[in-house]
Amino acid sequence: MNQTLETSYNFCINLARKHYENFPVASLLIPKSKKKFIAAVYAFARIADDIADEGDLNPKKRIEKLIEYKNHLINKSINAIYPHFPAVFHTIESNSLTLKNFTDLIDAFIQDNQKNVYQDWNEVLDYCSKSANPVGRILLEIFEIRNEQAFFYSDKICSALQLTNFFQDLKIDLQRNRFYLPQNLLLKYNLTNDDLLTFVKTNQVDDRLRNALNEAISFTENMFIEGKNLLDYLSGLFRLEINLTIQGGMKVLSKIKENNFDPIKHRLKLKKLDWLAIILKVIFNG
């Protein structure tokens, strides 16, 4: 490996170590031979996310920067501003990864700056097909799994994880004026976007939001359950890693329920004891 490429991978690995939050236990199970590839994918998505969300740029400028970022990817151009790209290009080539999965991720970040209200679950899941599902498909390809049924179940898991993150970060997204809970779900429980903003302002929720979240969480749990069929296509540590990820997502949903469906007052995260319980469950129940 030449020095430029090694430096690029080291940048990706350090970035992943610095920011990786959601499933820290599962990350330890990634085989050493795959870690640098997954770090490169993480860096690619993390930096795109930073462009989409960070700083004082207006949406138009952010979209311009994301399009520029996408063109760097497509044209395989090296730029000192983005030291991770040599590793990204090498990862794509070494594993024969589908480029569309990477461009879809950027398109999701562009959409975040164009659209902030979703009418129904179909619209939300269409967003997930770009924001979350490509990550699962990339991982499967890195682990040399290219089965359409496996991709289908992976999409279920990744969309469920994205929805879980929406519920977990409801307050943060509302503060950014993003409304991922479907409008027809809110209407069913006599809620409006203004009501959600009031919940953030007062740091209090009522039974209308609790009932809406209860339905949304049930919808998401069913996606996790269906997606768990992916495990039939996996083996070894990768199977264990994905199982832990599923169980971790389900545990977050359980904690939201245990906290009376109130992610506004407390952002719920998994603690070390939660992960210990999940690991024991996976080991003894499969």
Rank of each mutant, 00 (worst) to 15 (best):
F143C: 03
N222D: 07
D173P: 07
I138H: 09
E258K: 12
K255V: 00
F11E: 07
Y118V: 02
S8N: 03
I145T: 11
N113G: 11
H72G: 08
K251D: 03
L99P: 10
N22C: 05
R176I: 00
Q119T: 04
T192H: 11
S33P: 00
R146E: 09
N285K: 15
N22K: 14
V252P: 02
Q114V: 02
L240R: 11
P24Q: 06
E68P: 10
E221T: 00
D49I: 09
H72M: 14
T164Y: 10
Y42M: 07
I283F: 10
A43Y: 01
I63Q: 12
I278L: 11
E21S: 15
L276Q: 08
L105S: 05
F152L: 10
N95S: 02
F238P: 02
P59H: 06
E123I: 01
T4C: 08
N203Q: 14
Q114T: 02
A43D: 05
F219W: 10
K269V: 08
R267V: 04
E68A: 14
D120V: 00
P59K: 14
K257V: 00
T220E: 07
I242T: 12
E148Y: 12
K188G: 05
N193D: 13
K272S: 11
Q183W: 01
N177C: 04
K271M: 04
D50C: 10
A26E: 01
R146H: 11
F85G: 12
N2C: 10
L170S: 09
D49T: 10
A45M: 13
K272Q: 08
S94H: 06
K257Q: 12
K269L: 14
N58D: 13
E241T: 06
L140G: 01
L270Y: 00
E226Y: 02
L237G: 05
Q247K: 15
L230K: 01
L5T: 06
L237I: 11
K272N: 14
S154F: 00
I78F: 13
K201N: 12
F23E: 05
E123T: 02
I264D: 02
Y180D: 09
C128R: 08
K61I: 01
W121Q: 11
W275D: 04
E123S: 09
R137I: 11
